[in-house]
Amino acid sequence: MKSMQELEAIRQKAKKAMKVREGQENAIVVSVAMGTCGIAKGARDVMMALVDETAKRGLDSVVITQSGCAGFCEKEPMAKVHMPGQPEINYGYLDANRARDIVARHLVHGEIVHDYVVQLPGGEDRA
């Protein structure tokens, strides 16, 4: 590396790889239900698709995390998206393609992908 610019480029790239460790206050949190049922129905693929797609798109302020089983096994794989200042949106019956779709539309453009939204009893689920 021979310049300030190069240093900055490497720094930005490295930041992405490290993002998972940053506690971001205003981050969009995507949480994948990773109970046995979810995993059995393909939650891992969903998780990896989300990770991959957000990285590709350079979405720095997105944290992809996991949660335990939400108790709605038939709707698995499930994920919820929490944008700062907005209610959580629960998605169900996901696969890798749908996950990428969510990244493209919801995370990037803030558009709720109604096709995959599942309503949970009580509305405010604390999975």
């Binding site: 992405k16 998972v20 998780m47 989300l50 990770v51 991959d52 992809i64």
Partner: peptide, 10 residues
């Protein structure tokens, strides 16, 4: 550079 969904620091 690969991106991992989780980092485990030991």
């Amino acid at each position: 550079m690969s991106i991992h969904r989780s980092h485990i620091l030991v």
